[in-house]
Design a protein around this nucleic acid. Structure first.
Lengths: 340, 340
DNA sequence: TTGAAAGCGATACCAG
DNA sequence: CTGGTATCGCTTTCAA
């Protein structure tokens, strides 16, 4: 039983203990070059005794690669980013890369996260989720030649994995129209900070297009862009339901908001789908539990795919700067029905 | 408009551009030591022109601190770890520390993650969630003097944030007993790998104690430890409900499993809570949507607290090796009722 | 107030 | 095969 050294061993310690040069230790460590069997044994023995573990920081400095992939995303706000991260984690599990998580909640934090985009030293590659990096940083990124893939966001010159939000908005609205609804309201996010991607905005456009295509006049009082939270969505839905001529259906730009609508209806004694149809967007896990009709977007898949593209780029394959559009599905459950 | 250099600037470039030594650049960078106002301006200017960003890797090597905190956890299995990570992210948002995520799904990955525990070079501190680190690694940890706090796990010699699982199991079972139930089944996890903490095990103990205290004989066919997934829990619940003498109530060791029970009941046309009461554990977000009665544990809070303790340790405060036990609450919703 | 130079802990080239 | 040494980019004495 050897005494445990109070301070972790360095490569020089191993070399000294084995009576060889550090270059030799490095060789057996990385299995490159040839080392005499006997020598290699001595080194291995020394490593075992000293419990030596190479410093990844030193390796990173020397090799100019860190083996970590940075994931920048707005984390706490919604359930969907998490599902995406799961996809990323899964795709990266078999790779040698570790994951550094950068939350982008506060404006302060945002600055820092984006500045990091350009720190070519800290990560080998970047995955940016639902955020639009400033041109400035994108330029630096390519200058530092550190690969970056956007997930649920788009920027010229960067590969990305997205969905067709406009199409999704149309899909949802058209379904409601086909059911026979004419008084269809929309609840979406209000335009927030400039970096945050406004998927809700595009879904509104889809909503408007579908209405136009069906020659159903749009009513300003039915389009409410105010919030991302369930709580606020609930308030808005209540206002909507109290209108002299309330909508017979509501399209919410996200499942979280749709959940708020459901709460409002329940609170007001409005039967869903009897008196009100509700359709959401995303198909987060809760949606299936509450039987919410929604437009499903492949959240997990988006993370997985994004990570795969990044891995390819990291492997040297130039990865054509293309935009990969994931498919959307209408998932009909129990919250929609023809109007009475 | 300066030309953008193809390769990121190093401190030496800045020094050269400003016509000073690198030590001076370092001084203005870190605002230590004194620098003549004029000199500092020249340096700042050079930094701006060259778009210089210090390499965090080089800094880490030189300073022997990385400013990253590692979070090791079983990620994809349940909804609860995520809630904990949210707490961690929140607590660390205001700190200068970044977060490195280490998923511990596969056995392979597990090896790697735990080996990392001892890599005193990669992270400044560690947060281990729902996992019990091997003694060996704990020893190394303290040898390398890198602080570590356990969340939802316990190990002598390491500070931790936990809940009283036995007490929680009793709480749930006792509630069912008070409601008048006597045929109470339990569905929990099967003992999995040795590193994974078996909170379910302790909850079983609480279940048994409560029954014993009420002098209700335990039936082996009512205690099923088989799975962590909703799907399997559903199968088990179906078996339970098909028993000649089915239980009138089920205590599931987690909300996810309770959800499976709910599905089974629905599938078999068994009314909840009319014919069957169901109580879960955790109080994950979905629980409130489906109206599940459950034992609430502060998931988010556990992450926040753990991170705070680690931050304290990192700040030099020895942080007495204590175990912090977070409170549990019975949340009564719609899935429980006295037996008919 | 400033600069030269010695680490920090690896990798890898170049001789021997 | 193997060892010395330069290098990676930054911080920090130690002198000047």
């Amino acid at each position: 039983m050897e005494a445990v050294p109070s301070t972790p061993a360095r490569i020089a310690d191993v070399a000294a203990h084995a009576g060889v040069g550090i270059a030799t230790v490095s060789r057996v460590l990385n299995e490159r070059g040839s080392v005499a069997a006997a020598t290699r044994e001595r080194v291995l023995e020394a490593i075992r005794i000293l419990e030596y573990r190479p410093s990844s920081v030193a390796q990173a400095l020397s090799l100019k690669r860190t083996l970590v992939i940075g994931v920048v995303l707005p984390f706490l706000t919604e359930a969907s980013p998490i599902e995406r991260v799961r996809g990323v984690v899964t795709a990266l599990a078999a790779s040698p890369y570790d994951i550094a998580l950068y939350d982008v909640e506060s404006a302060d934090r945002q600055q820092r996260a984006f500045r990091l985009l350009a720190d070519a030293h800290r990560t080998d590659g970047l995955l940016v989720v639902s955020l639009i990096p400033p041109d400035e940083e994108v330029r630096r990124l390519s200058a530092g030649s550190i690969p970056c893939v956007l997930i649920d966001a788009h920027h010229d010159g960067l590969p990305s994995v997205v969905i067709d939000d406009v199409g999704g908005g149309e899909l949802a609205t058209r379904y409601l129209l086909e059911l026979g609804h004419r008084r269809i309201a929309f609840i979406g996010d209000k335009p927030a900070d400039p970096f945050r991607r406004q998927s809700s905005r595009d879904r509104t456009i889809g909503y408007e297009r579908a209405l136009a295509a069906a020659s159903v006049p749009m009513r300003r009082d039915y389009v409410r862009e105010g919030t991302q939270s369930r709580h606020l969505a609930r308030n808005i839905a209540e206002e909507l339901l109290r209108l002299p001529e309330p909508p017979s259906a509501v399209f919410a730009a996200s499942d979280v908001q749709a959940l708020g609508v459901l709460e409002a209806a329940r609170g007001l004694g409005v039967d869903v789908p009897g008196q009100l149809s509700v359709i959401g967007f995303d198909d987060i896990e809760i949606a299936s539990y509450v039987g919410l009709t929604t437009v499903r977007q492949p959240l997990f898949e988006s993370g997985r795919r994004g990570a795969e593209l990044l891995l390819q780029a990291l492997a040297g394959q130039p990865a054509p700067v293309h935009v990969e559009t994931l498919p959307l599905d209408l998932v009909v459950r129990g919250t929609t029905r023809p109007p009475r």
